[in-house]
Amino acid sequence: MPSLEVITSLVIISVAGLIHASFQMSVSMLTLLSSHTIGSKRSQSRLVLLTNAFVFGAAVAIFMMLATMALIWSLLITVVNVHLLWIICCGLLLGLGVAVWLFYYRRQAGTTLWIPRSLARFLASRAKATKQTAEAFALGLTGVVAEILFIIVPVALASLVLVQLSAFWQAIGIIVYLVTSLLSLLIVNGLIGRGHSIGRIQRWRENNKHFLQFAAGSGLVVLGIYVYVEKVMTIATAVAR
């Protein structure tokens, strides 16, 4: 039976994963990849292979990012007070939350993001050119790396929580983060696999983009405040007593 501390840690990890899932670049790339694959008359089984490879690539990239951040934290934790690391994480969560409220989507039709246009054009052309599963896998990796400015904060928080758990709960925590952070990709992948129209998926995303933006920003701010109260204020108060 997990202790209350472990449950709290897993809740923080899953909320961080859900915030990660609300960032939309990988989903945009998946819809572009699917749209071009269907448009060039490739078979449904080929489409499913490509989209599965894309999602697997994204999963590997997230896992590697999580492991790298965990390594950095575990090295830092030996030389820096852990409360300082929590405070850094909280600051990043609050800062990114406000930035997402203000800047995530561009003020124009569609679901264009605040990324350099040259990078967006490059990613779109790569999605169009992708024909092999290995290319789709690499595209999945690239999609996660291209979104690093936004996702690094939830990944950093989840990995800071993970390094303080036992090995067994670390493994569970990694699975929880991977599943929750991939939720949006898994849902869109399932819809495409079942034969849903890409236009309908894209239209839903466009109609709800401001809600997703608000939810992601609010999630980051609320999580930042919660972590500050739970990990910094509570312990600081206990020490003062």
């Binding site: 670049m25 749209s35 124009q108 967006a120 779109a124 236009g199």
Partner: peptide, 14 residues
């Protein structure tokens, strides 16, 4: 209309 939406917006996805 669905295809028209796709045709018009495919450059505004990313």
């Amino acid at each position: 209309p669905e295809a028209a939406y796709e045709y018009k917006n495919h450059k505004l996805v990313l």
